[in-house]
Design a protein around this nucleic acid. Structure first.
Length: 616
RNA sequence: GCUCACGUGGCUCAGUGGUAGAGCACUUCCUUGGUAAGGAAGAGGUCACGGGUUCAAUCCCCGUCGUGAGCUCCA
């Protein structure tokens, strides 16, 4: 211990020397300008730990790790004390007090053995565990601020007065120690931290906006879907939600026509034997629903692939038939563990815009190029402008020869390059059965969501012994490409609701326009005629014939985010016009009925992206 | 699955150890209205479910189910 004390003093002296020669530049508002945000966040994590210990001196608080994350930091701690949302303001207050005290933060170096002794003495077993994993000769650094000591690599600010008061403790949650399921669950406190009042405000505002757009909230408000405990994590689509669902399928069908896909329909419940053949029984058993009937074990399909493999193996195909593209909107069931399900984004029953492409190995690149084109056209159509592409290559555990993988990875990479898209490579992140391309899109709040995926598969063709006859008359194995563009319709609907904030474009909106007569007894008859005229043209139009005020009807139409509101009164009847007000706008415009039809028809044409309308 | 929180009329949410309240929605009546809430009356709840403690539980305790924030998982 004396060796350690000695060491400590020397470092303290040295630090004093350094800090006294350090000229700090301060502006009036920002005390922390000389440090980068990451350092500030990191030091603020320590500050939070110090605040906790000072706030609850009689509690045993064992510190885990407190790293910097996007927008802030967290700290994992182990304590009997239950830290809930009520405690967060108290901790914040304590932290701000400590900032005002300008407590010096000092760096110390120490050898591993002494570090273990020190943190044992401090009764910080989690820290001891961390140090014990360091190599023997490693020089350990720790920091002191007042009576608080924390193991840390640094760097940190010089004293707590340099820290930003623009932080907020957000919430608490459980987290496994060292991220391992078999280890103890610690309490984690999440916080955001910025270097200016404006940035913090902006971020909190962002969180509020995100909350407003939450698809679960909008889904209820706009009568799109609901959930019921009788079917956990399984959405019930109400008429308006079902419209979106079907409209997306219609959309994909139009896309498929232009890219030579053929739609198939396959069974829902299939003999367990099939899932043994496919390998799902061994590897995916935990996530499958089973049922027994006539002493035979069946499973609900969690994926369509095995069905398509059967379909392929039922015929003898020539290379001339390839690529063969089977699309399937079959309903899938996956038993997701209770803690992982959420809204529409992770559910237990869903539908993918799924397709499997059976292809000659040498044709992979061309097919991928076409897929990339199709994906980009479609994502942009839904106004996802920011698209991230990742190529995931072979993992350690894999099937198939290195030669196959080399060719496949090269084909994917070449296809991405020739398509001119930016992409990054996730080394070793591919599925064991083949490399894949994952596509993420940013929504209106710049949050990224994974939608589509393109996966090569060398495994299933093997397991199902798929063959086609090549030009030389030999029987050879095709490669299978799994691909989904929207991903699951449920998830896509969830993401898209948040992207557009529930205000769908005209072509997709469940109700495209609402007709409001000014005075029912004078105008209802005419309004009903107009409604019928538009309905007969296929527009989704609703007549509001309730005896309510215009104010109320206007308010409800706006709240329902219906693209157009059409008011009909004396003036309109006399001039044979319609008063149109677009969603989100204050002003109204008068159009003749014919002009309105033209406007609506034009808007409906946006159903298909330009790139596909002109497709030859 | 794990940790924590939550579950009160269709929706959003108050509330209390002595079996419940508001606003919106709903029904009826009045109002005949020109672009974000006209007025009145009425109906509607085993306070998620099952146990326990108590003279008495919607409230306290335990369990189950569901939901949320995370963690872990994601062929």
């Amino acid at each position: 211990m004396d060796h350690f004390d000695n060491n400590c003093q020397q470092i303290a002296k040295l630090l004093l020397l350094i800090s006294s020669t350090y000229i700090s530049f301060r502006t009036k508002d920002t005390a922390m300008i000389k440090h980068d945000l990451e350092t500030i966040r990191h030091s603020t994590a320590h500050l939070m730990a110090q605040a906790l210990i000072e706030l609850y001196p009689n509690e045993k608080i064992q510190l885990g790790i407190g790293p910097v994350i996007e927008n802030g930091f967290y700290y994992d701690i182990d304590t009997e004390l239950q830290i809930g949302d009520e405690q967060l303001p108290l901790i914040e207050k304590k932290m701000k007090e400590l900032i005002k005290k300008k407590i010096p933060i000092e760096r110390h170096e120490i050898n591993r053995q002494d570090a273990i002794k020190l943190f044992k003495k401090l009764e910080q077993p989690l820290k001891v565990e961390l140090i014990e994993d360091f190599p023997d000769e490693e020089v350990i650094t720790y920091y002191t601020q007042g009576n608080f000591i924390d193991l840390c690599r640094g760097p940190h600010v010089n004293h707590t007065g340099e820290l930003s008061p623009y932080f907020k403790l957000l919430n608490t949650a459980g987290a496994y120690w060292r991220g391992q399921q078999d280890k103890k669950m610690l309490q984690r406190i999440y916080a955001v931290c910025f270097d200016s009042k404006e940035s913090l405000k902006e971020h909190l505002n962002f969180l509020e906006q995100a909350k407003k757009r939450d698809h679960r909230k909008l889904g209820k408000e706009l009568h799109l879907f609901h959930f019921d405990p009788v079917a956990p994590a399984s959405p019930f689509f109400l008429p308006k939600g079902a419209h979106l669902y079907n409209a997306l399928i219609d959309f994909m069908r139009e896309v498929y026509k232009r890219y030579n896909y053929q739609e198939v329909i396959t069974p829902q419940v299939l003999d367990a034997e099939l899932w043994h053949t496919s390998g799902h029984y061994e590897h995916y058993h935990e996530n499958m629903y089973f049922t027994k009937i006539d002493e035979r074990e069946f499973a609900f399909k969690p994926m369509n692939c095995p069905c398509h493999m059967l379909m392929f193996s039922n015929f003898k195909y020539s290379y001339r038939d390839l690529p063969l593209r089977y699309a399937d909107f079959g309903r899938l069931h996956r038993y997701e563990r209770s803690g992982v399900v959420s809204g529409l984004t992770r559910v237990r029953t869903f539908c993918q815009d799924d397709a499997h492409i059976f292809i000659q190995p040498e044709k992979i690149q061309a097919e991928i190029e076409q897929l990339i084109e199709m994906f980009f056209i479609c994502y942009k159509h839904f106004d996802f402008q920011d698209i991230k592409v990742a190529l995931s290559t072979r993992p350690e555990k894999k099937v198939g020869s290195d030669e196959i993988w080399d060719n496949a990875e090269k084909a994917l990479e070449k296809a991405l390059q020739s398509s001119g898209v930016d992409f990054h490579i996730n080394e070793g992140d591919g599925a064991f059965y083949g490399p894949k391309i994952d596509i993420q899109v940013a929504d209106a709040l710049k949050r990224y969501h994974q939608l589509g995926t393109i996966q090569l598969d060398f495994q299933l063709p093997e397991r199902f012994d798929l063959k086609y006859t090549n030009q030389e008359g030999q029987s050879v194995r095709p490669v299978v490409i799994h691909r989904a563009l929207l991903g699951s319709l449920e998830r896509f609907i969830g993401v898209y609701i948040e992207h557009v904030g529930g205000a769908f474009p005209f072509w997709l909106a469940p109700v495209q326009a609402k007709i409001i007569p000014v005075k029912n007894e004078l105008h209802l008859e005419h309004a009903a005629k107009i409604t019928q005229q538009f309905s007969k043209l296929g527009f989704r139009i609703q007549l509001d014939e309730r005896n309510e005020t215009m104010g109320l009807k206007t308010r409800e139409t706006q709240k329902a985010k219906i693209p157009y509101m059409i008011v009909i009164g004396d003036q309109e009847i006399e001039k044979q016009t319609l008063s149109l007000r677009a969603y989100g706008e204050q002003k109204t415009s008068d159009y003749s009925i014919e002009e309105t039809i033209e406007i609506f028809q034009k808007l409906n044409q946006q159903k298909l992206p330009q790139g596909l309308r002109d497709f030859s």
